[in-house]
Amino acid sequence: MNTLIVEDEKSLANEIAEYLQKENIICDKAYTGISASEQIAVNQYDFILLDLGLPDYDGLDLINEIRKEQDDAAIIVITARGDVDDKVKGLDMGADDYLAKPFALIELYSRMQAVARRKFKISTNEIRIDDFVIDLRSRKVLFKNEEADITRKQFDLLQYLVLNRNKALSRIQLYEHVWGNLLDDQYDSNFIDVHIKNLRKKLSGYGQVEWLKTVRGVGYMAEY
């Protein structure tokens, strides 16, 4: 996938690029609105990561330009201003998703995958692990066609782990993804542990869950 990162903080743009390149995503970087505008006019992108808070350019204008120049590009808006207004405006004008700083790189990658699945109709709605089938569309877990009884949050956790196959996810990353807008300051690593423990207990009632691994010092991983 061809991606343009529009971010005036060079250091952040470089880190994002470094991470995405490891996932085999081709990255271009634009540190100013003007150079972004030029690159949009010249190149075709699958993804444009756009920081709305550019010093030389109104981010919302850029969205307009992107929509005019390239219809296919998916836009993920990034901003330090988590303002509701910005978010609504950005999504209204045709952004596909929205991320508030600071975000986990893996969260960004997951969002990109989700947008891609939606936008480019990549149909991986069912993920198979041993005898478990995780249906992303109906949000169900089936074991040999029998529906496993898990809660919504447990499904969210499982889905995030499964989609980030073979990647260790930290408790913070899981917490932010599942309870992202819960607005609680008292981040408690125990919180995730309890939910994973319950998830394992439920799933192991159907079949073995060796694939749901604890990674010491980091967090959890779905290995399959």
């Binding site: 903080e9 880190e15 330090a80 700083k101 600071p102 975000f103 893996i106």
Partner: peptide, 20 residues
Amino acid sequence: SHELMTPVSILRSKLENLLT
């Protein structure tokens, strides 16, 4: 708060990249 979010963001990305 806004100003602080960007450096936090950079720091976080750097550390996460380090972990990979």
